[in-house]
């Protein structure tokens, strides 16, 4: 399946990625890709990714522009985003 991932604020700056298109084998995640599984998959890239996505920093996630928790399911064509807790206003 194909998904698009966006990164914002500290994550974007540190990972040096603002977005990426990711193609994953359909059977790679026991048929259900959750936000947590995607985080763990990306964290596997290297130490920086590990720190930013699975470290001490709080990371929030969105699927198709909706804030979701780690158990949310990602399907083909979804737009996923990772970012720190928001600080607007």
């Amino acid at each position: 399946m194909k998904i698009k991932i966006f990164y914002f604020a500290r994550l974007k700056e540190t990972l040096k990625f603002s977005s990426e298109d990711l193609e994953l084998a359909d059977d790679a995640f026991a048929n259900t890709l959750t936000l947590l599984k995607l985080k763990a998959y990306l964290a596997n890239r290297n130490e920086t990714w590990q720190q930013m996505l699975m470290g001490k920093l709080k990371v929030r996630g969105a699927i198709n522009h909706e804030l979701v928790d780690d158990n949310a399911t990602i399907v083909d064509g979804d737009e996923v985003a990772f970012f720190p807790p928001v600080t607007g206003g």
Binding site: A9, R10, L67, A81, F83, V86, T87, G88
Partner: peptide, 8 residues
């Protein structure tokens, strides 16, 4: 807005 709108 302070806690849910995606601004940084």
């Amino acid at each position: 807005l302070k806690t849910e709108a995606p601004f940084w």
